[in-house]
Amino acid sequence: MAEFVTLDLPEGDAARGVAVLRIARPPMNQFNGQLVREVAEAAEAVAEDARVAALVVYGDERVFSAGDDIAELSGLDPDQARAMAADLQAALGCLAKVGQPTVAAISGYCLGGGLELALGADRRIIGDNVKLGLPQIRAGLIPLAGIRRLSLLIGPGAAKDLVYTGRFVKADEALTLGLVDEVVAPDDVYTAALRWAGQFIGGPACALAAAKAVFEAGPHGLDRARTEWAELFTTADREIGTRSYLADGPGSAAFVGR
């Protein structure tokens, strides 16, 4: 059983719905090695669960994550750091490996490893009182998993500014930069994320996973798109979708998720 993460999955063998992954390491949900591993294990469970149409990742009403556990990191020697770097990097990028659409519902602070995790989500919804940042440089470190994804998201110039200075970004600037996708009242963060995720219930799960794989392929996206497109012709959803589209137009298909 996980100590710092809870995962609520849809109930019933046939039901498809929204899963919720909650980060719970009080008081500030700081990311240590155990929390990162537990988040990655939960994300892997979601990816393998056909009942899940979409995933919401949430901390609580006060904070998503106040950043890395610097006390733990300060105790590592160089050999230990080298040994764990690849696993931690992969774990912080775990949301990008989930085939279902994912959304980070962010309250309070979202810093360091917490923001690196959120950067792997398909969408980020924040409260208008949120502060985001990658302050690792102030501890003589760098973000382990977030630099490339941040650069692709907001451009290399803006990404270098945030990484080199370690400064915090408020909600309005985060939206302007493209660091987040939606700003809502603090009390509405979780419900807004559930609303966004809920639109994929009953959706074309195979096509959504294929589209996500193409986005993640980066410079190899054209090659990956050809492969994913052709493979969709082996799915029941493609057959159902094209038949329904021809008969009744778009938006009328009853997809089965396989």
Rank of each mutant, 00 (worst) to 15 (best):
G127E: 02
A174F: 10
A207K: 03
Y109W: 12
E44M: 05
R149C: 04
I142D: 14
E3W: 01
M1A: 05
L177I: 10
A121G: 02
A90Q: 10
A85G: 04
G75C: 09
L222I: 15
G178D: 08
D79L: 15
A247W: 03
I137D: 07
L88V: 09
T176C: 03
E72N: 03
E116W: 07
E216C: 13
A118F: 02
A205R: 02
S244I: 01
A85V: 14
S65L: 08
Q34D: 13
G127C: 04
I147N: 11
N29S: 02
L144T: 12
A185K: 12
G251D: 05
R16I: 06
A66W: 09
L246Q: 09
H220Q: 15
V46K: 03
M28E: 08
K170W: 10
I240M: 01
D188P: 08
E41P: 00
G114H: 03
L9S: 06
V130F: 11
V130M: 13
Q199C: 05
K97F: 05
N32Q: 01
R238A: 07
F64C: 05
T242I: 08
K160E: 10
C94V: 05
E48N: 12
G12K: 08
M84S: 13
A213S: 15
M28Q: 04
L92I: 04
A47W: 03
L119Y: 01
G59S: 00
A24Y: 09
V57E: 02
E48I: 04
R149Q: 12
V39I: 12
P156L: 13
G140W: 06
A43I: 09
V169K: 06
A253D: 00
F64D: 06
I106H: 07
Q30V: 15
E3N: 04
A247D: 06
D122H: 01
L55Q: 08
R258H: 12
M28L: 10
A185M: 09
E173R: 11
A217H: 02
T176K: 10
A81S: 11
